[in-house]
Write a protein that binds this DNA or RNA. Structure first.
Lengths: 230, 230
DNA sequence: CGGATTGGTATATAAACTATACCAATTAAT
DNA sequence: ATTAATTGGTATAGTTTATATACCAATCCG
């Protein structure tokens, strides 16, 4: 029965935001008073979290100006602020788990998806096509797409399971730079998923989502190798 | 960023214990001072939880004697003390999600399981055979068995996902009474899983766990129907 | 009966968080 | 360059939550 402190939660949340690319190196975080409203916390709590983040070297606070993200690699982050045993988790582990859960989810989604959700998927694909240049946005829409499918499964345990995994995903900084070709590939997979969902074609829907996740894993491998070589 | 109060956590924990059959109707909960040590909480916090539980009609507190479980049906419990949108979750939903996650897990377990875990499974099957009369113990060992397999997958995201689903399972009071035949069936499925794991036979391991979960679902259906008919 | 255990009550204390106010540094518009 | 707005820095009072003790009365059990 250990109590999770609010400012610690916030530290994790902000690290996740930075790791997911919402704020890049040198970017300024929102003003303390703004975050108060955003997270519905008092300024003292925000400052406590900021203090921790500065000690960790993740941000640099300038009086009268703001808090700025320092360039920090994933590996330097101390484990106590990361989710569970994140240290032992590879990107392949995450993809493997996602395949298990999302394949099951899309099977149900084929039966249960409604017109509104179908429209959401359509819109998201459109947004993805417009965001080929801005990869941060692109991967945001990608994740949203998968979220909609999970929701459409209408199976609460699966939804809960996916959310718990997404927590790991948020901390995976693997999407730093990807070729535009890869983006095109990703879009085509999502289109296949959508059309399979439209036709209630369980087999092809499952196939498409698995191939997409395989592809996502391959890209991450490429990035990791290039990181090592530099 | 909502703060989860300790006594609220405890209320949920105790409800889960009761729902899972650890305490049946009329049973006495451990003394407050004992729970203090057990959960490492102060007595004030325990009493706050007990007070909530009494207001909910889940326990009855007798001065100088103890806290006694009232006969309460699952449905009467207010949703704010239940996990997430538990109200909308059927047992079939849980089984479906478990199949997705556990099939994936046992595939990895075939590769990664070590001698110690194999021995644990062996011991658990033995305990299950000895607990055919005491169904509460039996289902406890059953769950432990699945836990070991999940752990043996060595995939943290899958483990996390399973834990989040187990939360739902704890609240499912479906195992009230089961015929002994069913128990024999369950044991045989677990033996099949174990032997498949020994032989690193992914296909048969996955088959066995799926059949077992199907069977578990069928039993719950039977119980539900008999509940309606009474 | 009598001692041990149990819930009932009260109180002092600490920690976490909120709410508010004011200052100084920075920034950006004029 | 001046000014007004915004930002972080600091201090403080108050609330909520949880801890730690102590003592009482009801209950239980040998």
């Amino acid at each position: 029965m250990n109590k999770e402190l609010l400012h610690t939660k916030l530290v994790r949340e902000i690290i996740a935001q930075i790791a997911s690319g919402a704020y890049s190196d040198g970017a300024r975080l929102p003003a303390e008073r703004k975050l108060c409203r955003q997270y519905n916390l008092s300024r003292g709590t925000i400052r406590q979290a900021f203090c921790d983040l500065e000690k960790l070297g993740i941000i640099r606070i300038k009086a009268g100006s703001g808090a700025y993200v320092q360039k920090v690699s994933q590996k330097k982050l101390p484990t106590n602020f990361l989710p569970q045993d994140f240290a032992n988790v590879t990107f392949s582990d995450i993809i493997f788990a996602r395949k298990a859960i999302e394949t099951a989810a899309i099977t149900l989604a084929c039966k249960n998806i409604d017109a509104r959700q179908m429209q959401q998927l359509e819109d998201l694909i459109h947004k993805m096509e417009l965001s080929k240049e801005n990869l941060l946005d692109f991967f945001k829409y990608d994740m949203d797409f998968h979220q909609v499918i999970i929701q459409a499964s209408n199976n609460m345990p699966l939804i809960t399971a996916f959310v718990s995994i997404a927590e790991y995903h948020k901390y995976s900084q693997v999407f730093s730079s990807v070729h535009e070709d890869e983006v095109d590939f990703a879009v085509s997979y999502h289109k296949k998923m959508l059309s399979a969902l439209k036709e209630r074609d369980i087999k092809n829907a499952a196939k498409a989502i698995n191939k997409h996740l395989d592809h996502t894993e391959q890209i991450s491998q490429i990035i990791k190798q290039s990181e090592i070589s530099t």
